Amino acid sequence: MDPLIPSTGWNSDGLDAACAYVGLLHAEVESTLEEMVGIILENSRTVTFHYQTHPVLMNCVLHYRARINGLAPELDIIPAKGLLKKDPLLLIKAWDNHVKPYFSLMVEKNHGAGVKYMEKMLHPLGVVVNEKAFRRFEGQGVSKISSIRKVGMVELMELASLRGVAMHGNSRAARTRLSITTPENIAARGAMSVSCMRQIATVLAKDTWKAGR
């Protein structure tokens, strides 16, 4: 933000720059989260294929088994957990043929990166964002691997709120909402949001990536 805003406070150009900054940074947060989860899932498939069943892949397949079979129970297209645990190649087949396309469609249709979307992305892996919400996933057979509950997400959620105004409201509403902040405040929120994503990446790398090894 620093090169785009006046040091004395907002002017018309600065408010426009702030709206663009908020929207673009939030889009980057969303993209980063999706990319991290995608890489972890590919790693879990590779580990399952070459070494042993990775709990992230098992968690994700079991969650979407409940979702997909709930939509078409008469088909029962993904085998039960007992069969998946016995046969890693069956687990991989279920992921490749059914779960991965369903997961990709969910990502494609999403716009935004609030807490609810983080739950959608991370709870199927076994990463707890919200303990109460995660219980439903446990009921589907998803086992807890890690947690980001202690990661500070307040600033990220504030940024999500600002992004909603900047991207989905009219320009007058967005400028009004941003005008009650300061350039320094917006820049600080952006920096804290980046820090939040860095913390999440660290948790995923330390716990979720290595799970089952």
Rank of each mutant, 00 (worst) to 15 (best):
V22D: 04
T46V: 14
R65Y: 03
V22C: 01
Y51S: 08
R67V: 05
E34F: 07
T32N: 00
L15N: 08
G38S: 03
P73T: 13
H50W: 12
I68F: 04
T46R: 00
A27G: 15
E74Y: 00
G23M: 15
V22N: 08
H63K: 05
V56H: 02
I39D: 09
S31C: 09
L15K: 04
M58T: 00
L33K: 08
T48E: 00
M36K: 05
V47Q: 15
R45G: 11
S44Y: 02
E42I: 03
P55T: 04
P73S: 09
T48Q: 01
L41F: 02
L75I: 14
E35Y: 12
I39M: 10
V29F: 08
Q52N: 12
G70N: 09
P79F: 01
S7Q: 15
P79K: 02
L75P: 02
D13W: 03
L33Y: 04
L25Q: 07
N43Y: 01
T48D: 02
S31N: 15
N11H: 06
Y51C: 09
G38W: 04
H26P: 04
G14K: 03
L25W: 05
Y21T: 06
L57K: 03
L24C: 11
E42L: 04
K81Q: 09
S7K: 12
K81R: 09
I39H: 00
S44C: 05
I5K: 10
L15Y: 03
Q52Y: 06
Y51E: 15
S31R: 15
H26W: 07
G23I: 12
A20S: 12
E74H: 00
L33M: 15
G38H: 01
G9Q: 02
G38N: 02
S44N: 07
Y21W: 15
I5F: 08
